[in-house]
Amino acid sequence: MEQRRWDIDERFTGVGDAAAMLPAVHRLEEMMRGDGWVAEEPEAHLLPHLRRVPGWEILGERLLDDGFYEVRARPEKRLEGIHEQRAVIRFLSVIAEPAFLVRQTGGNVYECVTGVMPGDSPGYKSHGHLVRVIVTD
């Protein structure tokens, strides 16, 4: 079993835990559980921004019953591994709000939650978006 965490890792362990972020993560989780937290009409609020990202073509989009806004997108050039992961994060960053989490859920599928929590933005009620990006060739 490989112990390395990346290609040149010689330490095999980190410097601590990430518990300092847990209050923010739990707060986001609490907001995400709120009925009606996911905003409506992502095609009006998110799609125009995603369409303007250089190097990406939107091939299709749809709002799913579970609240995910699913976007099929093709990068201008073929990407793999960490290069694809970082490109997808840059792609999604155009819709990022104060809370922003992206996770690769398998192969070429990435899921994102982004939102505004109470106190993040004066004048705006807490809300968020769920976005699933499917990278295609």
Rank of each mutant, 00 (worst) to 15 (best):
F100W: 11
F12Y: 15
H127L: 08
V113E: 04
V135Q: 00
I95K: 00
S126H: 09
G14C: 08
T136C: 15
I95A: 00
A39F: 00
G106I: 10
W6K: 01
V102Y: 07
W6H: 13
F12P: 05
R4D: 09
V113C: 07
E70W: 08
Q3H: 09
G67Y: 05
R51H: 07
G34E: 14
R4G: 11
M1F: 11
Y69H: 04
R5V: 08
V38F: 09
T114P: 06
V38E: 03
L47A: 12
Y124K: 04
S126Y: 00
R11P: 06
G67T: 07
Q85T: 08
I58G: 06
T105D: 10
R72S: 08
Y69F: 15
L46M: 10
W56T: 05
G14Y: 11
T136A: 13
R52K: 15
A20N: 06
G16T: 13
V131S: 02
R74C: 09
K77L: 09
H45F: 11
N108K: 06
H129L: 00
F100T: 01
M32C: 11
V53I: 02
Q104K: 14
A96S: 13
E10D: 14
H49Q: 14
L47M: 14
E10S: 12
F91E: 01
R33A: 15
V38D: 02
T114S: 10
L64C: 10
V53M: 05
R103K: 09
Y124T: 04
F100D: 09
Y110W: 07
M117S: 07
W37V: 08
R51S: 05
E2L: 06
G36I: 11
P75C: 04
I8C: 09
F68G: 01
R132E: 09
I8W: 13
A73Q: 05
S126P: 15
H26K: 10
E41N: 12
D9T: 02
Y124G: 00
M21C: 10
W56I: 08
R103C: 14
